[in-house]
Design a binder for these strands. Sequence first.
RNA 1: GGGGCGGUGGCGGAAUGGCAGACGCGGCGGACUUAAAAUCCGCUUCCCUCACAGGAGUGUGGGUUCGAAUCCCACCCGCCCUACCA
Length: 926
Amino acid sequence: MAYKPEDIEDKWREQWAAESLYRARVDWERPKHYALTMLPYPSGDLHIGHWFAMVPSDARARWMRMRGYNVLFPMGFDAFGLPAENAAIQRNIHPWKWTYANIERMRGQLRTMGCMFDWEREAISCTPEYYHWTEWFFKQFYEHGLAYRSEAMVNWSPSLQTVLANEQVIDGKDERTGQPVVQKLMTQWFFAITRYAEQLLDFEQLDWPEPVITMQTNWIGRSEGAKVNFHTEDGDPITVFTTRPDTLWGATFMVLAPEHDLVDRVTTDEQREAVEQYIEQTARATEIERLSTDREKTGVFTGGYAINPVNNEPVPIWIADYVLSSYGTGAIMAVPAHDERDFAFARKYDLTVQPVIQPEGEPDLDGETMEEAYVGPGVMVNSGPFGGTAVTEDKGRKNPGISAVIDYLEEQGIGEESVNYRLRDWLISRQRYWGSPIPMVYPINDEGEIVGDPQPLPDSKLPVVLPEDVEFIPSGRSPLTYHEPFLYTTTKDGERVRRETDTMDTFMCSSWYQLRYLSPQYDEGPFDPQEAAYWLPVDVYTGGAEHATMHLLYTRFFTKAMRDMELFEETAAVMREHGRDPEGLFDEPMMMLRNQGQVLGAERPGDYLLISGSQEGTRWTAERVEVIDRRDAPEDFDGLQGELMRRTENILQVAGGEDGLATVEVPESAEVIIPSMEGEARVDQLKHYLEIQRMSKSKGNVINPDELVEQYGTDTVRTYLMFAFDWQKGGPWDPEGIKGPQRFLNDVWALLVESDLAAESEATDKAMRDLRRATHQTIMRVSDGLESFSFNTSIAALMAFKNTLQSVQNTPVVNTEAWTEAVETLVKLLAPFAPHIAEELWRNHFGHPESVHVQPWPEADEEIAAEDVITLIVQVNGKLRDRIEVPADIDEDAARETALASEKVNLEGEPRKVIYVPGRLVNIVT
RNA sequence: GGGGCGGUGGCGGAAUGGCAGACGCGGCGGACUUAAAAUCCGCUUCCCUCACAGGAGUGUGGGUUCGAAUCCCACCCGCCCUACCA
C-alpha cells in the first residue's frame, strides 16, 4: 500500500475535529502555554507566506503539547481595513460581503494546513461582538485621559481622494499607486502613547529579537537635554529644546517652524510678504520634496529678534522648514559653529558663526573661516562663567559641560532639564467606513452644526453598530457622514447629538486580539477573567518583523495602559485564588517573540530595458528608459539593452553591457516608458514597477499553496517549508526542492508499511546498541531544533535517522525491541511536522487507540545516546593530520600517545606543547 | 547621512572557538525499463592526480589564539529599518 496523502489527510482532520482534539480548556492542574501567531488580514487567498508563518509555529505548539503543556493556539481575522472598502468602491460589493466571503474561503484554506487551531476560539475583529469591546476600550482610554482630540497633519492622497494611514505611505508616496501624498491639517483622535515612552523603552522582561528592540528604541528616540526659555524683544516667550545646552553661548540665531504660533507676532511689516510667501510655499511642498536627501535648506528672516537669556544678546529669528513643528517645541536655537544643519543655513544666509567649544590641541576655531561645524568634544570658550569646562562626547547629564549648564539654567530660572522623544502620539482616527466606530457624540444646534465638545456614549449604548446601507463614494470623508440615520441620535436627556463619523485605525483591533481569543463569545467584558487568569500572558508570539514599530509597540502600550486602568484586577484575583502570583504578568503582552523571514518567489528574469543616454565605461546616465518585451529586442540599437538585474533607488544594474553588468543612473529629467503602467511614468515609479524578485501577483511567480497541497499533500508542504529555509531568514522558493521532503515521507511510509521485515538470525548486542544510540541522538537533535526555532535541523535529523533505519532494515535488529523503540520514536518525533502521516502510522499501522498528538514527547537518555567510539582528531599546529578511532572514554595520556604515534604526524624532535581537548582532538604544537 | 542584520559548494542550508559543507535539491555515472517517469546503487567544494597522497578554501585585508566560518579591527557587497529629531 503506497503512501497517498489524499487518502489520509482529510480523514484525520475530520477525526480530530470529531474528537475535539485541539480544544484548549483551562486546566489549573497542568502548566499552560499560550502560543500565538499573528492573525491574517482576510485578503481572499492564503498565501505561501501565511503557511511559512503559521506552520512552523504550529509545529512548535504541537511539540509543547507533547511535552505536557496545555497549549492554546488560536486563529482569527484582522478583518477591518481599506481593501474591503476599496472593493466596495470599485466593484460595488459591500465590505461585509467581501470580507465574509474571504474569511469563509480562507478558513477552508487554513484547515488544509493541518494546524492545531482551536476554532471555537476564533475571533473576527469586524463583528459587532468584537468591536463592541474595541469601542469600550476607546472609552476607557478616553475616560482615563489617554484619548484626546487635536489638530494634526495627515496623509492625503489626491489621486485616491482619501486619507491614508501612515503605514500606507512609503517614501512620501502611496504604496499601492506610487502617487505622491500631501499633508493636510485635520482634527483627529489621538492616544497618548508618548506618556508611556519611558516604560516602552524597558525590555527587561522580554525575550525578543535584538533588532526589534533596537528598532523600537530608535523609534521612541529618547534624547536628553534642556528646555531653554528665550524671549522676543516684545517679551513673548519662545521655548526651545536642545540636546546641547553647553553651546548656548554660540546661539547666534533662532529658527521657528513655519507653522509655529509666534511667527505672525514676530514678523515685521517689511518682512511680512516674504514670510507669508515662504509659508505658502512650504505648505505646497509635497512630502517627497521635503524628504529629498540633499535638498538645500531654505528659510526667511522674520525681521524679529529674540534675546539669548545667557548673555542678553539679540539674535535674529528666522523661519525654515528644516525645523519641524511636530518635534520638540517647533523652535530651535541655532548654533552654527557646532551643528551641521545650522552651519549650512548660516553660511547660506550669511549669519554669524560663533565657536564656543574649542577642540583641545587644535588651532583656535574661527567663525569666519570654519568650513564645517565642529561637533566633537573640547573645552567651552566664549561662554561666560563656563570658560574652560570640559565637554565630552557623552549625551545628557553624563557630559560635564551639559550638566553644568543645566544646573545653571535651573538656578537662573531660564530653563530646565528635559527629555524629548521622537515618538508621537498615536493617531487612531480614519476617515473611513470599514473600521470600528468611535463611540462619541457631539452636541449640535438647530442647523445640525457641532457646537460643543465630544461626549462618550454610555456603555449601555455600545456597540455603535456600522449601518449597512451606506454609499461608497471616494469623497475624502467617511461614508458615515452621509448616512442620516447613523449621524444623528438623542441622548437619554433627549438632546439631539451628532455621532463621530471617523472610525478607528485597525491597529486598535490587533492591539488586544490576544485577549479576545480567550473568550470570543464572552459578553460581559472584552475577555473572561477566568480564562485570562490561566492563559495570560502570551508565551510565544511569532510573525513578521515588519510589525516591529507599529503593531508590537501599540499592543505593548495597550497592555501597560490596561494594567494602569486596572482592567486586570479581576483576572489578578482569580490568579491568586489558584495560587498564581499576578505580579508583573500584565506589564507586557507577549513574553517571547520570534520573527520569520519571507519566502520569495522563484527567480524569474527581470524586465528587459532599452536605454539611451551617455556612457562612461560601464556607467550610463540615461536620457530615456523603456521597458520592452525581450522578444521585441532590436538587433541594432544605439544604446544599452539588457535585463534588469538590480535596482537601488534610481540606479539600475543592467545585464548586457559590454563587460557584463552596466550601472545606469536615471536622473529626474529622464523619459521613462513603462507599458504596464497607466499614465505618464516618472523616475520615482521605477521602484514600483521594476522590482525583480520579490513575490507578488503581478510578477506571475506566486506560489499557490492550494495547488501544492493538491499535488504533494499537506504534510509534504509543511515539511518542505520547515526544511528548506532558516525560518528566521526565509529565502527564494525552489520548486524542485520539495522533492526531498516528498521522498522522505514516502521512505518513512515504505519503511514502516511496505517492507517485509523478517530476519533469520539473532541481532548482535552492538547492532541494538547502535540503533538505540541513533534513536536517542535523534530525540536530542529534533528537540533542540524545535526549542531554537531551527526547524530545518530537526527535519535534517529525522531524515538522517530514516537513512539509518533504512540501512539496517534487512538485518536481524528489526526483530528487537530496539527497532520497535526506533520506529515508534520516529513517528512521535515526526508528529509536530507532518501530523497526518504520523497519526495514520501511529493509529492505523501500529494500532494505538490514542492520537499520536497526545503522546508524551520521547525523552533522550544521555547514556544511551553517548558514543563509545570517537574519532580523535590529530592536528599539527592546528592543521588536520589524522583521524583515529579510539574508545570514547580514552584518557589524556593514551590520547596523546595515540596521536604522537600516528604515522601522519611524522614529528621531528619533541613537540613544544600538546593541547588535548577531551573527547575531541589532540593538537601538537612544534 | 544614521542604525541594524547578513555574506559558507552550482543552489537551499549545517557547523557559534576544535573533522567546514550535516540534511536536501541539482548534476554526473551505473542498475531496472522497449522507452520515459518513478525507484535503487555510487560519485559530487576547488586545484593537481589513473589512483594513493597532497595543496587551497567560509566576501577582502589585518589581528587575537595552540587552533577562527565562529572573537576583534578596517574595508567591500547585499538586505531591512530610519531619515533635517535640534
